[in-house]
Design a protein around this nucleic acid. Structure first.
Length: 259
DNA sequence: ATGGTTGTTGGACAA
C-alpha cells in the first residue's frame, strides 16, 4: 500500500499537476495540505473520476487539508482536539479501508518567531502530542502525515546557520517534534535513509531556491509501531517541483507491506 | 542587495 503526502499550495491552481501525479504515481492514499479553498470548491469530480474517495476540511483563502483514498474513508475528526476555539483547517483524520487510521495535517508555520504565530505553532504541537498519545493508546495502525513545518535536524536544511532562528528550525520546534516521535512513532524517510543528504521536500519560490537546491525537509510521514514494521520503502518525488507553475513542496511517499 | 516569488484577492497577508 502506497501512502503519500503533498502540500499543493492551492488545489485549484495545482489541479493539472495533481491529477497528473495521481495518474503516474498511483498512490493508494494521498494526503493534501494548503488547499486554500472551501470544501465546495474542491475539484471533487476530477479526483473521484480517478478512482479516489475524498475527505476535505476546507477554509477560505488559507490552510485546508484532505485525504484521497482508493479504499473507503470514514472521517473521524475534522479538527485537532485541545482548543475548540481554533478555527483553522489544519487537521483531518479518518479510517481508510476499515483497518488503518491516517491523518493529514498542516502544522502552523510559526514565523515570525518569536511572536504570536510562533506561540500558536508551539501550542498546536503540544495539542498534537497529546492527541497522538491517545491514538497510540489504541491498537489501530496509524500514519500521521503532512506538512509539519519542522526541519528536524541541521542535516535537513541547506544552510543550517542561516535558518537557525527560523520557526522551522528553532530548537523549540525541533524539541517538540522529537517529543512527538519519541511517543513511539517512526519517521519513515529518516528510518530508511539515515545518511541521506540534500533530501528536501520544500524549496522556496524566491531567490532561485529550486535551481540552487536550497531546500528543507519539512514534510513527514510518522508511523505507529504496527506500520513501522511494515515499512518497505519511502522516498521524495522531486519531479513535480520541476514542472511549470509548481507547488513549492513536492510529494513524499512510503510503501507499506501487506499487513 | 532590507532584495526575491506565488496564491488569494482585489490591499495585504501568509508562506
Amino acid at each position: 500500500m502506497k501512502i503519500a503526502s503533498w502540500n499543493v499550495n492551492s488545489v485549484k491552481a495545482r489541479l493539472a499537476p495533481l491529477l497528473g501525479w495521481l495518474d503516474s504515481a498511483k498512490p493508494d492514499v494521498l494526503l493534501l495540505q494548503e488547499l486554500k479553498c472551501v470544501e465546495a470548491d474542491f475539484p471533487r469530480i476530477e479526483v473521484e473520476s480517478r478512482g479516489y474517495r475524498v475527505a476535505v476540511v476546507g477554509q477560505k483563502t488559507y490552510n485546508g487539508v484532505a485525504i484521497l483514498s482508493r479504499l473507503p474513508i470514514e472521517v473521524a475528526r475534522e479538527r485537532l482536539p485541545g482548543d475548540e476555539s481554533d478555527p483553522q483547517a489544519r487537521w483531518v483524520e479518518a479510517m481508510v479501508g476499515g483497518r488503518l487510521r491516517v491523518a493529514s495535517l498542516y502544522l502552523p508555520n510559526g514565523n515570525p518567531a518569536p511572536g504570536e504565530k510562533f506561540d500558536y505553532k508551539l501550542a498546536w504541537m503540544r495539542r498534537l502530542i497529546a492527541h497522538a498519545r491517545t491514538l497510540l493508546d489504541g491498537d489501530t495502525p496509524t500514519l500521521l502525515g503532512g506538512d509539519y513545518n519542522v526541519c528536524p535536524t541541521d542535516a535537513d536544511v541547506y544552510d543550517p546557520e542561516g535558518w537557525r532562528a527560523d520557526a522551522l528550525c528553532r530548537p523549540e520546534s525541533r524539541a517538540l517534534f522529537r517529543e512527538l516521535v519519541y511517543l513511539g512513532f517512526t519517521e519513515a524517510f529518516r528510518a530508511l535513509h539515515p545518511d541521506a543528504k540534500s533530501a528536501y521536500t520544500f524549496w522556496d519560490y524566491q531567490a532561485g531556491a529550486w535551481p540552487r537546491d536550497h531546500g528543507l525537509r519539512i514534510d513527514h510521514l510518522l508511523l505507529s509501531p504496527q506500520l513501522a514494521d511494515r515499512l518497505a520503502a519511502c522516498d521524495i518525488d522531486k519531479d513535480p517541483r520541476g514542472l511549470d507553475k509548481p507547488s513549492d513542496h513536492t510529494p513524499i511517499w512510503c510503501e507499506l507491506a501487506d499487513g
